[in-house]
């Protein structure tokens, strides 16, 4: 394999379509050619990184409301336009009929005009009824949408279904003296009945990550440390090269909502801080990234 062929293989590698034979040939060439070896290594790295970027993202509620509102408005406008078109063509027909009637000066003309007007009125009425129906429909949709929006926080636990899995994985099974175990926390584990020595306490640990934006990173870090202390938690603060910070918080879940509220207070960013804490979470680990404005 030559350098040019390796180049083609790099794309196949990214696409996940490299055959075993091609892979072997490519690696063999790489052992002879440092330049290609470097390109192969970087390609693998790029592929791994790309796979970490999400193909779907949560659409902020504001964005959802924005396009739905715009479409609703467009639908209303096009209805209105259709109604106007109807009226103006009907009105034109009346003008023509009146004109024809006058020109002929026929006795039947007034009756004809009356009839046309009656038809026009009925048409306008029926469009108006339809419009009213549509308004009801739009309102229903709006109500349904708002209900959905209101439901969103309730949905958070469901969204965090993956989280529960993480939490379950993280469940720390601590062997402990039976005397120290609360009966509710006992977990039946496979053990011989006569072992009888210890039961296990499952401490359910859930991990989350979040980003907050602040004016002054230093001050915010100090405040978060204070807040953590206040709620009997731990804060491990690491400063990052870019001036921000990464804070690793560990705390008891019972204090979570108060701590989150206190941190949310510091956040100048737009994204609301909501933590989908599960009722059975006991220990929370929060990876907080602090970004300066």
């Amino acid at each position: 394999m030559n350098c040019e062929a390796v180049k083609t293989c790099l794309d196949l590698l990214m696409d996940g379509e490299l055959t075993d034979q091609q892979r072997r040939d490519m690696e063999a060439h790489g052992r002879q050619c440092p330049e290609c070896a470097e390109a192969i290594r970087q390609t693998k790295q790029l592929k791994a990184l790309m796979e970490q970027l999400e193909p779907e993202v949560d659409v902020p509620l504001a964005a959802q409301a924005k396009w739905r509102g715009a479409v609703r408005e467009a639908a209303r406008q096009s209805r209105k336009k259709r109604l106007y078109r109807w009226i103006s063509s009907a009105a034109a027909a009346v003008v023509v009929l009146v004109g024809v009637g006058l020109a002929l000066n026929a006795r039947v003309a007034p009756k004809g005009v009356e009839t046309t007007q009656a038809v026009l009125e009925r048409a306008v009425e029926s469009e108006a009824v339809e419009e009213a129906d549509y308004a009801d429909e739009a309102e229903e949709a709006a109500v349904a949408y708002e209900a959905e929006a209101a439901e969103a926080p309730a949905r958070a636990p469901a969204k965090a279904a993956g989280m529960s899995a993480v939490a379950a994985e993280n469940a720390v099974i601590e062997a402990d003296g039976a005397a120290a175990c609360d009966e509710d926390d006992l977990i039946e584990i496979n053990r011989s009945p006569d072992a009888g020595m210890c039961a296990a306490v499952a401490q359910k640990t859930a991990a989350y990550e979040a980003t907050i934006r602040v004016k002054n990173v230093d001050a915010a870090c100090r405040q978060i440390e204070d807040i953590a202390r206040e709620y009997e938690g731990e804060a491990d603060v690491r400063r990052l090269e870019d001036g921000g910070a990464s804070i690793y918080l560990t705390l008891d879940a019972v204090n979570a909502s108060d701590l989150i509220a206190a941190i949310a207070h510091l956040n100048a960013g737009e994204d609301a801080l909501e933590l989908p804490v599960q009722p059975d979470d006991q220990v929370l680990q929060i990876m907080l990234t602090v970004v300066g404005e």
């Binding site: 970027l53 991990a207 801080l273």
Partner: peptide
Amino acid sequence: LDSGWSPVDGGESPEGHAMRREMRKMLR
């Protein structure tokens, strides 16, 4: 930047986590 709360791999070190976040940010 990543935004909102999301579950993370509980076994990851804070440094590793911060680095990976930084890498994703640079790639974007």
